[in-house]
Amino acid sequence: MAGPGRTTPAGDATYRELVRPLLLPSWLVIGILMVLPVALMAVYSFLTREFRGGVIWEFTLAAYDQFFFDRGLFGDEPPRIEWTYITIFWRSIWQAGLATLMCLVIGFPTAWFIATRPARTRGIWLFLITIPYWVNLLIRTVSLRFLLRDTGPMNGALQSLGLIDAPLPIINTNLAVQIGLFYSYLPFMVLPIYAAVERYNFALSEAAADLYASRWATLREIVLPVVKPGIVAGCILVFIPSLGAFLAPDLLGGAKTFMIGSLIDEQFRGSQGNWPFGAAAAMILMTLVLFVLLIYARAQGRAPR
């Protein structure tokens, strides 16, 4: 999420004449296989639904209309606000926000602790955080489902310790999805904060301590403002994938824990699907994400370097 990196001084621009041919492959691949598809998705969200999946090339606002308005079973009643999908989006935003907060509460102290270790052990701690980051998210989510099951090891351990009488009904609830989002994206929070704390000048904290600031006042007044870019980057890296998450709600949640990701996925499954509606929901999700990124970019642009 950093900027485009530093440019080499003009004299070091050894590949200046070759910029175009060197960039051409990435422009072509990402342009054709990502920018063009997203543009086409925007077009599809305004097309008419084909009932066997796919679309008919006739312009309509039906997909967005279905998302926001309820016109009764036959479409002839005066429009009322349709809450079903807005609720799913709102709950996704809320759950992603809560997951971000949970990750921050655990992730910041972890990042701080690791960054303040001596150089010799720091690498090992960091390595321990990095491994789950690269382990298959599907496998991690399946493992969490296994752990949280009613007859799973966690309930088994709590019961044999006599802490609970009956299994805690966690799996297939919103709580399980919440734990899943927190668990899925926790490393995404730790790593950028770690990078910020590692660059933090601890002389600032020492100066504050010399002036009789308490430990926690120093943290609040000095440390947090300085490492804020890392915190914000971590929050974005957790919030955005949480918002569009599919595996956590699908594998850990139940019938009532639909999130945006599951809603979109369903529109492209089999003959009950609705491609224009799925495209419209994806467009709305992407707009939300771009909005968050825009706020981030503007805040970064304003921040003193």
Binding site: M34, G244, F246, G261, I264, F268, M286
Partner: peptide, 17 residues
């Protein structure tokens, strides 16, 4: 760009394309 756009959106767009 592939890091900024949510995976599910890339998935939908690619399927449509």
């Amino acid at each position: 760009l592939p890091l900024m756009v949510p995976e599910i959106v890339i998935a939908v767009a690619t399927l449509i394309f």
